[in-house]
Amino acid sequence: MVAEVASSAVKMRQPAWWRDYAAVFGIAVVVLLILLAVFAPYIAPHDPVIPSLRLRLKPPVWMDGGSWTYVLGTDHLGRDILSRIIHGSRASLIAGVSVVAIAGSFGTIVGLISGFVGGRVDTLMMRWVDVHIAFPGLLISLLIIAVLKPSLGTVVIALSINGWMVFARLVRSIVLSARQLPYVEAAEVIGCKPVRTIFRHILPNLAAPLLTLAVLEFARIVLAEAALSFLGVGIQPPAMSWGLDVASGRNYLFNAWWVVTLPGLAITITVLGVNFLAGWLRVVVDPYEGEKRFARAVANREG
């Protein structure tokens, strides 16, 4: 027993206090992202689009020649980098939320049907998922984008087409195990209609893991949108995106590192924060994890 607790403590990557700091960081990042995206025009100190050749490649404030007017410096067209980062948060947030909503709902429906109906329908759907997962998404995304025109909408479509399978798999596995639970079986035995069983008894089991997966997927989508925009097949100028800014700063990497580095840092911090949030959510929303945590704390106090 003691050995088991010890080994599971070893398996846990970080101690509890670190996990909570990470969670605070994650929540702060997400709140900041939402605020920046919603109030971008009011927060941004300068216009993010109008070029000004006089102000080209000004360094950030902490370097020689930097000024408080352009805190993070300016890019190769003299646009304020801070303002562009603030406005660029919109593309990440919109892409992330819409893809998770579209792919999440479609995947959940497929998973519910597959898990609930079972039999041949289940086999067929899961084969489809297997095949789709086996084939790497970025190339298919490129193909879809090449056929439609590159834009935020196309990015959302392409990423949704490649993003629903994980949701379907998760939902199906939870439905399968939930149906084995005595109270669900009891509900079916006393004659609950399938719709009632699904929505009333099975769906609540889905909420916690689905939420965690949705947050994790959000992080992945932010990265994917940035990558597509970097490759020139995502958001198109004059619309703004962090990936796009990294791409346009590439040619100035050798004499103005900040043009590439700062928008990239914005992506990294966002994704890191969202991943931390997901890690914390997994623990908080799962009652079993909570119990395990309690047991661990007790065991530590006694040992």
Binding site: A219, V246, V260, T268, V271, L272
Partner: peptide, 12 residues
Amino acid sequence: GLSVPLFWLGLI
């Protein structure tokens, strides 16, 4: 591996 964009890592 989880959080840094690959293109940015390359540029850095």
